[in-house]
Amino acid sequence: MKRSLKIILVLSLVMFCGTGFGQQKTFTNPLLPSGADPYSTYHDGYYYYIHTLQNQLVLWKTKNLADLKTAEKTTIWTPPKNTMYSKELWAPEVHMIDGNWYVYFAADNGDNNNHRMYVLENTSGDPMNDSWKFKGKLATPSDKWAIDGNVFKHKGQLYMIWSGWEGDENGRQDLFISKMKNPTTMEGKRQKIATPTYDWETRWEGGPHVLVNEGPQFLSNGKEVFIVFSGSGCWTDFYTLGLLQLKGKDLMDPKNWEKHKKPIFAWSKENGVYAPGHNSFFKSPDGKEDWILYHANDNSGDGCGGKRSPRMQKISWNKDGTPNLGTPVSTKTILEIPSEEK
């Protein structure tokens, strides 16, 4: 009986580990106990991961995002005190653009009315060192409230999309886009491409409607272009993901963006996943799989605080080319890690 038990244990380890029992092959969500607005970039065999920590920017480095709990991490930047960008650092993103590293984030001086986008640059080739330099504010001429910036290239042109106010008061969060002259400089005026109108992006039981479109993320299947965004307030269980689809060639023309009438990723009471949102996307190491990173809560009413935790799962594509994000899986669901390079 003891010999049989040993064989069973060995077989179980083989199923759950890689060669030499050193590489985790399966995982369950969440990836970390807490961490809102998760984002990762894959470069030269490693994932570089970052999320909101409010008062500093910390970068993780790992070959496997399922191993974030034991991954190498380092604080790459702490803002100087008493500046317009010293507090409430939100939704950072780490990017490799034209050979250099950049981190984009929103920050203010403790007054949310002053939230703007900022950028750091590292030209050393190694994002885990202390060579990060603050390059300043990223703003279009109108210089309005802005958070959740996402930077991407499309047909050689660099763009930023973000959530902002049309005016100077907090009444509604819309989505805006602008071209970028280079990774640290905006180019020209912003264009509003989405505003919250549907019930699922304005929902808040127990209070007045909220008007929120935020957390925009570029996504493409190689032909079609999309923006996935978060709707409703992050403090509600109904925080959810919606979809914009480009119907023309010019990304700067608001008429070319069509919003889908229904959300594409929503809370699941059955799976115990609430307020799934503020996502990003990444490809598996072998480039064959598309994955979503997002944060969510385990319990109803957990809101926007430190209980939000990062999760990931594989996505697919519908026959019409639109993304199929599925349903947020439970914390008991065993998933295979992203497919690796052979």
Rank of each mutant, 00 (worst) to 15 (best):
W267E: 10
L219V: 05
S12Y: 09
E270N: 07
W204L: 13
K144Q: 09
R203I: 12
K2Y: 13
Q24D: 09
W235Y: 10
T78M: 13
K137S: 04
I292N: 01
N271R: 12
Y47C: 07
Y48H: 05
V151C: 03
S268G: 01
N297G: 15
A139C: 12
L59I: 12
F282Y: 08
Y42Q: 06
S163N: 02
G277Y: 05
E340T: 15
W90D: 06
S131T: 12
G149K: 10
S142D: 11
L243T: 03
L65K: 02
L244I: 08
R3V: 14
D174R: 12
K262G: 06
I50C: 10
G20T: 06
S86K: 00
P80Y: 04
N113P: 11
M1L: 05
T240F: 01
Q217K: 14
S178I: 06
L251E: 09
P183N: 12
G287N: 09
G45N: 00
E187L: 11
P92V: 15
W132K: 08
T28Y: 06
Y39T: 09
F218Y: 15
F229I: 01
E88H: 15
E289A: 04
F218G: 01
Y274S: 05
Y48C: 09
A266S: 11
L9Y: 10
N129S: 08
Y239P: 01
L13G: 14
I315E: 04
D290R: 03
Y118F: 09
T70F: 07
I334W: 12
L138V: 11
L293D: 00
K2S: 11
G99Q: 13
N109K: 08
Y49P: 04
I50Y: 00
N256Q: 13
